[in-house]
Design a binder for these strands. Structure first.
Length: 368
DNA sequence: TCTGGGGTCCTAGGACCC
DNA sequence: TCTGGGGTCCTAGGACCC
């Protein structure tokens, strides 16, 4: 299992390792920090903290998870499952501040290359002869500086490190390499892989592939007809836990910015819809302007009640003029079908990318 | 009154050009 | 009248992640 569990078993040879650091119940933990009386209670964070509204759970504390509450679940359902839960509104600024503290601790670790994946997780690349010891020191440093616990997955690839973390939770360390990947993951369903969701796992099942071991043994070419020339081989590689081995700390540059709103009551009046589109445009323009970058494309997303989603998009001539962007947005909004209740509106602005950041340093797919 | 909000990337199919 | 391929660009939709 953990090859180097016995100290002194290996020679003193430094090797490159990937560590995946994941804060434990991050959002709930941050809330408990500022309200210590919540420790040990069922805490649910989501939306504006009002379980009668259309909103979903962002994070639930372990105590709430025992009742079957998880992130993504409608807040209303969660409140029903845990009647005496403390339900709190999402406070993004506070989580971001806590996240920045954690990330700065990671950056300060000796020899660490850090690739941030989100508020509460990051890859850390390091050259060490004892990754477990390094991971423990890292956990200790994060705890001392932020009072937050994290789990660490150790791997010889990014995918294996990422998948390893769950076996370390909470507050533990687990190592997953080519040597034990199939032993640990082989008999598990493909949906447990990072990047395989319900849809893909079902499509794999129609090909007779249900377990990670079956996916690992599959011929990449056989997956091309079902998943295409890129995704097919990529899934086969995922089944083996293979992929990139180096942590990439290239600063992330946003491809675009978007805002969306789910209305508490579906919109039916065209005037309301028009106003909502203008407000979205104003918000998106603010985000784009904050970076001082122009806009080259717009996509308007409309969810007609109950769940039919349509997108209307187009490239536009590069512009930094808010009035121009607003005018183009309103052009798109003319495509919204009248006489249909609108439950959600979203607007995304695409920005030009610098030449050298073409390929993905992205959390999800490309290059892995 | 089931299903948020902010992201990324891939694929299919049509238009258009040579 | 019937009919190739290859390439690129664009839009719409889908899937996944945190």
């Amino acid at each position: 299992m953990v090859r180097n569990a016995c100290p002194g078993q290996t020679g003193a040879v430094s090797e490159p390792w990937v560590l995946h650091v994941d804060l434990d119940q991050f959002i709930a933990a941050v809330e408990v920090l500022r309200r210590p009386e919540l420790a040990g209670k069922a805490v649910i964070v989501g939306g504006r903290g009002d379980p009668t509204e259309r909103a979903v759970v962002s994070t639930a504390s372990y105590e709430a998870r025992k009742f079957g509450v998880g992130s993504g679940m409608p807040l209303r359902i969660a409140a029903r499952k845990v009647p005496d839960a403390v339900i709190l509104p999402v406070d993004a600024d506070t989580y971001l501040a806590a996240s920045e503290k954690v990330m700065s601790v990671l950056h300060s670790q000796p020899g660490a290359t850090v690739q941030v994946l989100g508020w509460d997780e990051a890859f850390v690349g390091v050259l060490t002869e004892n990754p477990e010891a390094y991971a423990r020191r890292l956990q200790q440093a994060v705890l001392e500086e932020t009072m937050l616990h994290c789990s660490v997955g150790i791997g010889d690839t990014l995918v294996r490190a990422k998948v390893a973390t769950r076996f370390g939770k909470p507050a533990g360390v687990f190592r997953l390499t080519n040597a034990n990947w199939l032993e640990v993951m082989g008999s598990r369903p493909t949906i447990e892989l990072w990047g395989v969701g319900t849809k893909v796992s079902r499509r794999l099942a129609t090909l007779g592939i249900r377990t990670v071991a079956q996916l690992a043994a599959s011929n990449p070419d056989d997956l091309v007809p079902e998943f295409g020339p890129k995704m097919g081989p990529w899934y086969a590689q995922l089944g083996r836990g293979d992929g990139a081995r180096t942590v990439d700390d290239t600063p992330w540059v946003a491809r675009g910015h978007s805002r969306e709103t789910t209305f508490q009551r579906d919109l039916t009046e065209s005037g309301q819809i028009h106003d909502a589109v203008r407000e979205l445009a104003a918000q998106v323009l603010e985000d784009v302007a904050a970076e001082g970058r122009p806009v080259i494309g717009l996509t308007l997303k409309v969810r007609y009640a109950p769940f039919l989603t349509k997108t209307y998009g187009r490239k536009i001539p590069q512009t930094s003029d808010p009035a121009e962007v607003l005018a183009r947005t309103l052009d798109l909004a003319a495509k919204i079908e009248p006489d249909r209740p609108v439950r959600l509106l979203g607007l995304r602005a695409e920005m030009p990318m610098p030449e050298d950041s073409r390929q993905g340093h992205t959390p999800t797919r490309s290059g892995w």
